[in-house]
């Protein structure tokens, strides 16, 4: 049963994406529920006064350097988590054609969205 020739091992680049997935997953686990609750439910329903989420307040926050970093992380980092999962779920449901392209599209999407938000924040300064 033992093989006579030494097998060659190919290192995966997955640690890069797994690291981002883990960071995004951690953020999503701790913050996404309360974020959805605030921006998607409590403010639209008027339970929290929308004055607390006014243009002036948010714009003021997003144009400080730390505010911009927080907004970027809150908006973009979860995408590195979710698109990693979507990429692997495609394999799970048997979509095996063009895995390379699926990878480019999934992580490319997260990357593009991150750059999009980053550029907008930069513009506002």
């Amino acid at each position: 049963m033992s093989e006579t020739t030494e097998k060659t091992y190919k290192r995966s680049h997955e640690p890069v994406f797994w690291g981002l997935f883990g960071a995004g997953g951690m953020l999503t686990a701790f913050l996404t529920p309360v974020m959805i609750l605030i921006t998607g439910i409590l403010i639209p329903l008027g339970i929290i006064n929308s004055q607390n989420f006014s243009y002036e307040k948010i714009h003021g926050f997003a144009t400080t350097w730390y505010g911009a970093v927080i907004v970027l992380v809150l908006v973009a980092l979860p995408l590195w988590h979710t698109l990693h999962r979507i990429f692997h779920a495609l394999h799970d449901i048997g979509i095996n054609r063009g895995r390379d392209w699926q990878q480019v599209i999934c992580y490319g999407f997260a990357f593009a969205a991150s750059i999009f938000v980053f550029t907008l924040l930069l513009q506002m300064f």
Binding site: M35, A76, L79
Partner: peptide
């Protein structure tokens, strides 16, 4: 959650 991030973006 992806959709939500896009709404925020």
């Amino acid at each position: 959650i992806t959709l939500y991030s896009l709404i925020l973006a």
